[in-house]
Computed example of a mutant assay.
Amino acid sequence: MLKTYEEKRNNIKDEVLLIGNSVVEALETSLKTLKSDDVSALKEIDLSVKKLSNKSNEIDNLIVTALALYSPEAKDLREMVSFLKITNELIRAASNVKGFIKIFRKAYSDDLNTSTILEFTIPLHKSALLSLRTAMSMIEETNDNHTEEKYGRVMVEDSKADDLYAMVEKNILKLITKNLELSKEYFDVLSSLRRLARTSDRASSIASLALFAQVGGDITQS
């Protein structure tokens, strides 16, 4: 392809990575606050879904322009199509992370069984973070074997996140039956954790798109 296309391609990839890394950083920071049991610090995390959405629209316009001007073929075309879809998945992931941070912080209090909540929340959070971080690293991967290996890792973490959510859901429902007066708070915590699990789902979709861009095949998204 022409050098100008390569420049546009690299610019588009960098912008996609910028959005993804913003979401990963928010997850990293929120995990640290949970590990230190300083949930109030979640309010300090700055993750603007609106700004990221505007950036995503800019990227989509760059992609459409590149497709119109250069008519890329084969792998280059797959990559552009993947980027177009990945930006949407990243905004959904950002919305889920933002929702988790906001709802969890407001619902979490010493009145709840915090030890049980954190027992499952922290490993669930780790899986969501690892799955998204690994999926984003696939965008920069050039080795087919490494891409497939990373895809497998994302699928494992996504499955683990689903299992952990099912476990925490079961335990929180038990806590609700014993503390009906705190049912709203427990349900809100559960709602926030569902958003974490969905973040892992979005990472799975991003990994599928990155795999498609690198090695071809069918696009599979959850």
Rank of each mutant, 00 (worst) to 15 (best):
G152S: 01
A161F: 03
T33H: 12
E7N: 09
L90C: 11
R195I: 04
K32I: 12
S208I: 02
S95W: 07
V23A: 05
I19W: 12
S82T: 01
S205Q: 04
L77E: 06
E89K: 03
S22E: 11
F104N: 00
V156I: 05
T134F: 02
A135K: 01
L31F: 05
D76E: 13
A166H: 06
I59M: 11
S204W: 01
R153H: 13
G217Y: 04
S40H: 14
I101Q: 00
R133A: 15
A74W: 09
F212R: 00
N145A: 06
V154G: 02
K3N: 08
Y5H: 14
N21D: 09
I206W: 00
S30V: 07
P72D: 04
M138D: 12
L31D: 01
S95H: 06
L47W: 04
S53L: 03
K126C: 08
L173H: 08
A207S: 08
D111L: 07
T114Y: 02
S137P: 11
Y186G: 10
V168P: 01
E185P: 13
N54V: 15
S205R: 01
K32A: 06
R78P: 06
K178L: 14
S115A: 09
I122F: 01
L67S: 10
K35S: 08
I139L: 10
R194H: 07
L209V: 08
F120I: 05
G20N: 12
L173C: 04
Y5C: 13
F187T: 12
V16Q: 02
E149S: 13
E89L: 06
F104G: 06
E140A: 09
K8N: 11
T29P: 12
L62K: 15
I219W: 04
L130N: 09
L112N: 00
D110F: 07
A94G: 15
M136A: 08
T114I: 03
K43S: 05
L27W: 05
L2T: 04
S115K: 11
D218E: 09
I101M: 12
K184E: 08
N57G: 14
S159A: 15
F83C: 00
T4W: 12
I19E: 09
S56H: 03
M155G: 00
S159I: 02
P72Q: 08
T199F: 01
H146Q: 07
K75E: 15
F104M: 07
S48W: 13
K3M: 10
T29Q: 07
S48T: 14
R9L: 15
L62F: 14
E44G: 14
M136K: 06
S109R: 04
F104I: 08
A93C: 13
S159F: 04
V64I: 13
L129C: 13
K98H: 09
K126P: 11
L47N: 05
A128C: 09
E25S: 05
A74T: 12
L17F: 07
D46Y: 09
Y108I: 14
S191P: 06
N61C: 03
S36I: 10
S36H: 09
A166F: 03
S205L: 04
A197S: 15
H125C: 13
S82I: 00
L182R: 08
Y165M: 01
M155Q: 02
I91S: 03
S95D: 06
L34P: 10
L118N: 01
F83H: 00
K13P: 15
A210I: 02
L42G: 00
I101E: 10
R92F: 03
V49C: 07
T33L: 01
K184P: 15
R202E: 08
L34H: 13
A93D: 08
A128Q: 04
S82W: 00
F212L: 06
